[in-house]
């Protein structure tokens, strides 16, 4: 599974493209953008849930990426750095939308415990839809952990909450997805 441009992780190429961008070469900015735009747009889309907002966030993130390329240390991963900037822009978008990442009360869900996993018919479409229905805070934790491969500790740092809160929220997010998928399959 290759979501990110491996060729840019290859040092000489990375160095070259970054060096050309630093010199203000418009073609290099174009190449850099097109190498990452699809994967990064998908992150934005998952995090914001709206295509127009995802494009706005992506654009803002790339303005910062282009502006700060000379601050990128030569031995660090370009992909990880680009991704971090994109994720941070998504998070500030969510904060502007008043999404809180602190512990929340969610008594209503606990009563639905004990769903039989074997009955679930997981499909990409149902899982996607179920994630889309999660409250933004839970969705964010789940996205960062499963899709963006950040650890619980890294997510705690990004969201400025404790690691145990991240773990709890992640478990609940997963549980909620299961429930939604289960309800959906029962309806069909």
């Amino acid at each position: 599974m290759n979501l990110y441009p491996d060729n840019l992780e290859n040092l000489p190429v990375t160095d070259q493209i970054v060096a050309r961008c630093r010199m203000g070469d418009a073609r290099a900015f174009h190449d850099l953008y097109h190498a990452y735009s699809k994967a990064m747009y998908n992150i934005c889309l998952r995090m914001t849930g709206h295509s127009a907002d995802a494009e706005d966030v992506l654009q803002e993130a790339f303005v910062q990426i282009f502006k700060n390329l000379d601050k990128l240390a030569t031995d660090s991963s370009l992909t990880a750095w680009v991704k971090r900037i994109v994720v941070n822009h998504c998070l500030s978008y969510l904060r502007k939308k008043k999404v809180y990442f602190e512990e929340v009360e969610d008594q209503e869900w606990k009563s639905e415990d004990g769903v039989d996993e074997k009955e679930h018919m997981l499909t990409v479409a149902t899982v996607k839809e179920a994630i889309g229905q999660l409250p933004a805070g839970y969705r964010t934790v789940l996205n960062l952990y499963i899709f963006e491969d950040y650890s619980h500790r890294e997510i705690a740092g990004l969201l400025n909450i404790s690691e145990s809160t991240v773990k709890t929220q992640y478990m609940r997010a997963k549980e909620r997805v299961r429930q939604i998928v289960h309800l959906k399959s029962k309806r069909i």
Binding site: R22, H34, R46, E55
Partner: peptide, 21 residues
């Protein structure tokens, strides 16, 4: 789970904001 990329407008807008050397 990966969808399409962004529309061409994003690059068109970015192009106008490229940093100068």
């Amino acid at each position: 789970f990966e969808g399409e990329g962004p529309g061409p407008d994003v690059w068109a807008r970015l192009e106008k904001q490229l940093p100068k050397p």
